[in-house]
């Protein structure tokens, strides 16, 4: 039975774990920016970890339920309210037919995941329900939810009262640290800029969304002099248009680094100085504008260890909720 959207929040989209396999045609993976939070929300309501849920950024939607449901909200600290009564985040709770789920103001983080037992059951597009707005793909007609939308929900069997232990929840600290493997076109930078990039404290710019996060307030980067390669363009930050890794950091004109995220543009003509490690991608999804950010240089071994640690944390949540 569907959920009626009374108010959509700022930008609320349907997301699951995304649609790999089409990046070579410019269709990005999409899916939850904070995958850990999505998996936890789904586990709390008894869904498959990759079921589709709502991703609300900065502000929650108002949803009217037409049937009894079990719901969980994870990720950002955005307190859910059922008919005005506050509920715990990272904890499953019941919503009765006719009740309204709304949200308090944002306390920390940036993106909340709202999972409903049974999962949001909009049609699949290329193997995923994730919304990719630029390509008008997935979700509800390829766009964020709107007032009056009726969101179909699958058959669920969730229990209320389950909770992710506080020590296993995850969010960014007051200063975010993002670990980066330098590479790709790192050699384009002069040594002084290779140092300042990691020494400076940057700040998340207002231009931060599912495509990418922009940073400012660091020292402008300087490039090694060269004759522009044919096809690259005359700006020292240009390259012959190439594919961009998820998490890669491009710095057009050397001024403002941009980290590409789940709705990445798949390629273009700007040099990249390195790539954020997979273990830290979820954190970016929880960063608000103006968050002070440091980039930390790591090698592949450190990246794989961090990846392993993240996987262990998820396993710990699985065990805690299965007990």
């Amino acid at each position: 039975m569907p959920i009626k959207v009374n108010a959509p929040g700022l930008v609320t989209t349907i997301q699951d774990l995304g649609r790999p396999g089409y990046y070579h045609l410019g269709i990005p993976i999409s899916g939850a920016m904070d995958r850990f939070a999505l998996r936890c929300a789904n586990m709390l309501v008894g869904n498959d970890e990759g079921a589709a849920a709502l991703e609300a950024v900065f502000m929650g939607p108002e949803l009217e339920f037409t049937e009894d449901a079990v719901v969980a909200v994870t990720g950002a600290e955005l307190t859910p309210k059922v008919d005005g009564e506050a509920q715990e985040t990272w904890t499953s709770f019941p919503v009765k037919a006719g009740q309204v789920l709304s949200f308090d103001y944002l306390k920390s983080g940036a993106r909340a995941y709202i999972a409903v037992a049974g999962g949001i059951d909009t049609p699949m597009a290329l193997g995923s329900r994730s919304t990719y707005v630029i390509g008008a793909l997935g979700g509800v007609d390829g766009r964020p939810i709107q007032p009056g939308d009726m969101l179909p929900v699958g058959q669920g069997n969730g229990q209320s009262g389950l909770s992710v232990p506080a020590n296993l929840r995850r969010g960014p600290g007051s200063t975010a640290e993002l670990r980066v493997i330098p590479g790709l076109y790192w050699h384009r930078l002069v040594e002084e800029s290779q140092r300042s990039f990691f020494d400076d404290t940057w700040k998340v710019a207002p231009e931060c969304d599912r495509m990418g996060y922009r940073f400012r307030d660091g020292t402008a980067l300087k490039f090694v002099e060269r004759t522009p390669p044919f096809g690259a363009g005359s700006d020292p930050s240009n390259i012959t248009d190439a594919c961009y890794p998820y998490g890669s950091i491009q710095v057009p004109g050397g001024t403002e680094p941009i980290i590409l995220h789940r709705d990445a543009v798949s390629g273009g003509g700007y040099f990249m100085l390195g790539t954020v490690i997979s273990a830290d991608m979820d954190l970016i999804g929880q960063m608000q504008p103006h968050t002070p950010t440091r980039f930390v240089s790591v090698d592949m071994d450190a990246a794989l260890t961090a990846r392993h640690d993240r996987a262990s944390q998820l396993d710990a949540v699985r065990s805690a909720l299965a007990a």
Binding site: I181, G183, L184, P229, F230, G231, A232, I239, T240, A242, C243, P245, Y246, G247, S248, M272, G274, T275, V276, I277, S278, A279, M300, A303, L304, R307
Partner: peptide
């Protein structure tokens, strides 16, 4: 050959287009 984080390998065949 370059690693793009822990999930990508980027291979630049040539700096110039041809």
């Amino acid at each position: 050959y370059e690693f793009g984080g822990d999930e990508h390998i980027f291979v630049e065949v040539s700096e110039d287009m041809s």
